[in-house]
């Protein structure tokens, strides 16, 4: 670490502008950073002071919206939750940032999320219950135990870090992917929902849960610490 407590970082960013570049290339930026800085701060520094053409997504910048998922030093994570001190050992080092793999790159770190959202929509990620509401006009009650059953799945922020860390998804983009299965889990195990069988029928198809190879990359990549592989296995078990 430098004398003032800062760290010298070489930030390598995978750049690609389909309108101009024939193929992607690595851009390199050198800067000083605080150990507690996030990779998002470094990307902001590039965008605001070094090269305004760098394209990326971010919204809340606090790990809630899930828009800045990217591959950082070889692993999928949110740029707003990745701290320099966890990526660089000693006073200097390199941080490598590239777009999540398996989806078309629109520009630099921005990928086309539409196929991902299409998989999400395919599992009916909404509450289904056509039975009449309780007579007292209040909500459909649920025990704390029943609520707990799908609690982990409610934490998903649809960042796609899990789906794009999955080799099965890399090999076959028609696989619904971990995120869509987590979203299905949220409703399949909801005691108030009535469309569990329909969702299981969708997920038992060729590109459903059985493409999961229990690799665990999704579980490690999830920024919300959802035990994704466990939830997928629970859906497999419900078939």
């Amino acid at each position: 670490m430098a004398t003032n407590g800062t760290v010298k970082v070489e930030l390598r960013v995978r750049r690609y502008n389909p309108e101009r570049d024939e193929k992607p290339y690595w851009g390199s930026f050198e800067m000083e950073a605080e150990p507690e800085d996030r990779v998002l701060d470094l990307l902001h520094h590039v965008q605001w002071y070094l090269d305004g053409t760098l394209a990326m997504r971010r919204s809340c910048a606090h790990g809630v919206c899930g828009s800045d998922a990217m591959r950082i030093n070889g692993q999928n994570m949110l740029a707003c939750k990745a701290l320099v001190k966890n990526l660089v050992r000693g006073g200097k080092g390199r941080i490598q940032v590239e777009p999540i793999y398996g989806m078309r790159v629109i520009k630099d770190l921005i990928v086309d999320m539409e196929p991902f959202m299409e998989h999400y929509r395919s599992v009916m990620p909404y509450f289904v219950n056509d039975e009449p509401a309780p007579e007292n006009g209040r909500e459909r009650l649920q025990s704390p135990e029943d609520r707990e059953r799908f609690d982990e799945a409610t934490k998903c922020i649809l960042c796609a870090a899990c789906t794009t860390s999955c080799p099965s998804y890399w090999a076959n983009g028609t696989y619904v992917g971990p995120a869509a299965i987590v979203q299905a889990h949220r409703f399949i195990f909801d005691s108030r929902d009535k469309a569990g069988k329909d969702r299981l029928a969708i997920l038992s198809q060729e590109n459903g849960v059985w493409r999961c190879r229990t690799i665990f990359n999704c579980t490690t990549a999830c920024p919300r610490e959802i035990p994704v592989t466990q939830l997928i296995a629970e859906v497999k078990g419900a078939m």
């Binding site: 591959r71 692993q75 793999y101 080799p167 690799i215 665990f216």
Partner: peptide, 9 residues
């Protein structure tokens, strides 16, 4: 080969 997965990968 590039992705830094753990034991599972």
């Amino acid at each position: 080969l590039r992705y830094k997965g753990r034991e599972g990968q």
